[in-house]
Amino acid sequence: MSEQQPLIKIVKGKKFYLKLTKPQRIQHFILMVTFIVCVATGMPLKYYYYPWAKTLMDALGGVMATAYIHRASGIIMVAGFIDHLCYAYRQINKFYVRPAKAAREFSIMGLITFVYYSPTFPRIKDGVDMKNMMRYYLFLTDKHPRHERFYWREKLDYLAVFWGTNVLGFTALILLKKGFFLQFLGGWGMSAVTIAHSFEALLATADIIVWHMYNAHVNYDKMPASPLFLTGYQPEHIMKHEYILEWKRINELVKNDPSLMFDQDEYDKHEEERQLKQYEDTKAYMATMAAAVDNERAYQSGHGHDDHDGH
């Protein structure tokens, strides 16, 4: 996405802060859909002995159909993961490598430092925050830790998915080509792969249902569902409560460059004006087109101004 999204949007007098950019939302959406499909088609196989398993599987098209749906969905999920890696690579290039090279200051240490400070990378501050959060939960302090755009809670989620997609993806590849891999892996290896795939899936499902659903949709004022994953914007009171450092950082940026803020209310106010202006433009365009035939005739018959470049 080349077009810059505003960091703050004002809608009905309320401020909303950008948290997920459009490519991130698309990545999340692909992951979400493929994950749900994989769970719906995989869990009946894991829990085949419950009566709902057969019901669900039949509803989804039977054993063979779900097997293919599961595979297709898994392949798309892995493709999404690879896309995410490419995205990370592009971001590193865009924000560090190319600018640093232009400034002739590029260094491996600098690159590592940049990656270390990128928003989803775990760092020392997360450990400190986590410790202080525990103290806060235990009533040992009244100081709530101050977070940036993503803090340990979300980073745990991110790491779990990062690791989970790898484990599930590689084991899935082996299971998909079992005849080939069995030649090297042997029976032990294969049953280990099967166990890993099945349990990692269970772990992921449990963590998503409990941890992620809670964090993203239940925890602090987000009930019943936070539209963040669709809109990409977080309301100000949540920003202040959970992401106070990011809130400050964005405010600072917007103060320096007000064009980073977009006021929907202001924009809507001038709606009629804009339409009227647009209509003027449209009419002018139509008039030009209407004149074009006569102009062309005149040009071809030798009259009129010869403005063509000759080819």
Binding site: F181, L182, G187, M190
Partner: peptide, 8 residues
């Protein structure tokens, strides 16, 4: 492949 038979 015949390796499939290694499976437990």
């Amino acid at each position: 492949s015949l390796g499939m038979g290694n499976s437990y």
